[in-house]
Design a protein around this nucleic acid. Sequence first.
DNA 1: TCCGAACCGTAACGTACGGTACGGCAGAAA
DNA 2: TTTCTGCCGTACCGTACGTTACGGTTCGGA
Lengths: 216, 216
Amino acid sequence: MQTTIDNGEALTARQTEVLDVALRLLVEEGDSLTMTAVARRASCSKETLYKWFGDRDGLLTATVQWQASKVRAGNYDRQHLDAAALRDSLEGFAVNWLSVISSATSIALNRVAVSHAGSGKSNLGSIVLANGRFAIGERLKPLLDAGRAAGLLAFDDAEEAFRTFFGLVGRDVQIRLLLGDTLKLSTAAIERDAKRAVDQFFTLFGAANRPKIRSL
Amino acid sequence: MQTTIDNGEALTARQTEVLDVALRLLVEEGDSLTMTAVARRASCSKETLYKWFGDRDGLLTATVQWQASKVRAGNYDRQHLDAAALRDSLEGFAVNWLSVISSATSIALNRVAVSHAGSGKSNLGSIVLANGRFAIGERLKPLLDAGRAAGLLAFDDAEEAFRTFFGLVGRDVQIRLLLGDTLKLSTAAIERDAKRAVDQFFTLFGAANRPKIRSL
DNA sequence: TCCGAACCGTAACGTACGGTACGGCAGAAA
DNA sequence: TTTCTGCCGTACCGTACGTTACGGTTCGGA
């Protein structure tokens, strides 16, 4: 993308090992993790940490990007798209997204990214945004477009349709978890929520059985 | 010492003046505001700050509660509830909520609450949650119940219906803003979004005999 | 065998900031 | 006037942590 020299693939095994430690520590202690703690836990010296990642922000940035590179899921592009396939794909997206945002890792990373976005001390916020909200948007919109092309969906703007889908799936989950609400989402609950969200989405944007949806 | 500022309004004018300064500083500098900065900007001594609020967390807590006490809006309870009145009320809620979460004050407060929820060093998260997400839920659910009683809405669980409404209104706005996305919401855009969300909500939860909602 | 690079462990430095102490001042009470 | 109270301004203390420095160890290659 920009700025950083090590764009992600210039990482040795030992370095990713260190980043995994940092990730685990970030989940445990949040933004209050110290360089000393990372070094001790990873059995490496602080000097090495600074040599590899520059400074604390560099370490955090590399950690976030490392996690993002692990999460990147495959795109859903089917050749044969009927109503059932579309529904399956949407439910897959919803399940995946709910699983991600309710995971301890995502919560910890989003928290530190939010705080750094406040202090303006790094661009963790935009990194998380690019690999979270916007990444899923870019992956989902082609599916929505294909659904419209197949006569299964009706909307004017894929971006707007996606934002509504995003709201129907996520609702209040992410903000509650980020603010420390103890909200347990079982896999059963996640699948139930995903189905409900997709049902609602089809009610709003399904093409087959509806009169014209009023455009914005 | 005593724990004065807990919940009641035992705040002198001078104290609220200090809290307003802290609030402004919190918006400007985020969680990195220092006691020294607050004291200097408020023209008071640090000793006074510690005497009044105990410690840094006490000051932040009092600041968040002070802001919450200013935002508390009136409940929407009408005697005469028809479709138009229900729609107006829902749109009012939506406009109000979008205005709040897109305000610089709310963003700053949510950011610091999120970071503290991560460090577990205070209960700012639950305070913000109680005065934000849950407060609006408790104010909106009676309206939804009334709408159902009047035969205008159909749902099983008011909580679930509210959460869907919450998602339709907020969508990705809050998380994007918290992560530093530069997302400008004009009042016109807010009103447009509110109308769209309410339209969609009626599509999902309107009672069987759908009223005419395309009139505007 | 020797050399240098990479890295570990730890000590040390500098600083920022939370928290405390203290002197001075203004105003109310007496 | 004196005295007491509450507060301002500022200097000060202790600590935590980012960052640097350095000695010691391992290991690959000449």
